[in-house]
Design a protein around this nucleic acid. Sequence first.
DNA 1: GCATTTACGTTATAATATAACACTTCGGTG
DNA 2: CACCGAAGTGTTATATTATAACGTAAATGC
Lengths: 131, 131
Amino acid sequence: MSKSLTKNQILVLDTLKAAPKPQTAYSLLEQLKEHGLKAPPQIYRALGKLLALGLIHKLESINSFVACQHSDCAHQIAGFVICDGCDQVSEIIDDNLELQIHSVAKTAGLVPKKSTMEIYGLCRSCKGSEA
Amino acid sequence: MSKSLTKNQILVLDTLKAAPKPQTAYSLLEQLKEHGLKAPPQIYRALGKLLALGLIHKLESINSFVACQHSDCAHQIAGFVICDGCDQVSEIIDDNLELQIHSVAKTAGLVPKKSTMEIYGLCRSCKGSEA
DNA sequence: GCATTTACGTTATAATATAACACTTCGGTG
DNA sequence: CACCGAAGTGTTATATTATAACGTAAATGC
């Protein structure tokens, strides 16, 4: 039987799902103060669990978190495409890319367990409105 | 005329080149105290410049820095393979992977400017000595 | 029921990174 | 050469991100 989430975990997950862009732990804390959360560990513990369950992802390069865009993300190997202008994030699952990553890792003599890939640039609409 | 590096920049770069594994800003600071460096900004400024010059890279997922393994790394798109056991890092430049990344970004409607890719696992020798 | 694990709330602190200020050094360029 | 501006320096202080440690409480498994 798969365990259900706890109150704090649900609060954090729902906030991330509703957010238009990646959130830091402290911005989540700020938003959840009105729900009674008061200290960083409460956020970080929930985030830790949600990460382990594959329900959210961490964007390492900006110390921020996003809800997984796939209903049940067992994928340990995903890529993220982030717009420098509007912070919109797309989560990319691509078999081809996954194969490629495995092949790169193998070249280095390593069996991949976990990976992170983050690509930054300008999306179409932000590119249009550039100076 | 290409400008030469300053004293602090050289100290940081040399320390990174000599290091067997990725170093954090504060571990660099610790090592460079004997050379007169005293405060974080001195390190972070040198790191920032070296990053901009492509002489070093930052591993975002572990807040650490490594010297570029290619003599003159103009490549903005590199991948890193890191062993969880011994922290050894290989920097991978692979045209195929680069193409793949561009293609993934394009799918999301974005022109890639910068990217980071970090793959974790166990290298051959660490895999051998596992419990 | 009772033991074990997992989560909770809280206080304190560690680790990573930057702001801001006054001063210096170095390359141009008039 | 003399001046200017850009880039670098050293320093203090502080912001941001993350975890340690403690005792309590709830839930899970047998």
